[in-house]
Amino acid sequence: MATSLAVPIAYITVLVTSLAIFSRIYRRRQAAEKTSFEPWFPAHPARDIYITLLSADPPVPESMLKSALLVRATADVKRIWRIKEDKQALMGLHERGLVGDDTMSRFTTAEKELEAEIVDVVSEANTFRQGWGAMIFATASEMAHAEKTRDTVINIAKVKALEEKRLSLRAKLLGLPIIQQQLQQQQQPSPAKLSPAASPAVSAPGSPQPGSIQLDSGASTPSKNTPKKTKTASKKK
């Protein structure tokens, strides 16, 4: 008699427990999946630096804090540009069903975060001086543009190195004439070293035409050029 009751109770208990465990694990996984989006922007180092400096124990000089806040605002300006760019592309893709809802929700979260971040920077700026918050992003946007200019100029050296590498490769593959040209540019031997027969032939295809140099009129004649080549190459960097 006792056994006949114990078996169904055990059966039901086991069933209910296993279902409960399953449901719990399943739901936890679902929740984790929903919240574990990779954030749109990885991290915000400028913000970390500002907050660290602000809460540093021996107080940091105020000019440093202001600089840190400006750098943070500049980073935010770059994010604003990026968000604007991404938004158009994403909207188009989402409408055509090429991008899922999860990506869109990641994006909206990022947008909201950025909005909060901007408001926070504005209020921080106002703690330094009332009214600075209204101007800080105008300043930061100029800073971001200036940084772009600086990056472009710094990049020149890289472009130059790349071109020179390409030139030397070409020289290797094509043979003598370009090697000569190469010598002129890179190692700047004295012009006497170049054989007189070779040098005019080499410079012929690309020799500068003084008439069309637009900077100044009558800049120089080719004959004036030759000694200069040597000097310039040394200070090219």
Binding site: I156, A157, V159, K160, E163, E164, L167, Q181, Q184, Q185, S203, G206, P208, P210, I213, Q214, L215, A219, S220, N225, K228, K229, T232, A233, K236
Partner: peptide
């Protein structure tokens, strides 16, 4: 332009 005149074409291009 100056690099060009000197024949330093890689610099001029960069």
């Amino acid at each position: 332009a100056a690099f060009h005149l000197a024949g330093a074409w890689a610099n001029a291009l960069a």
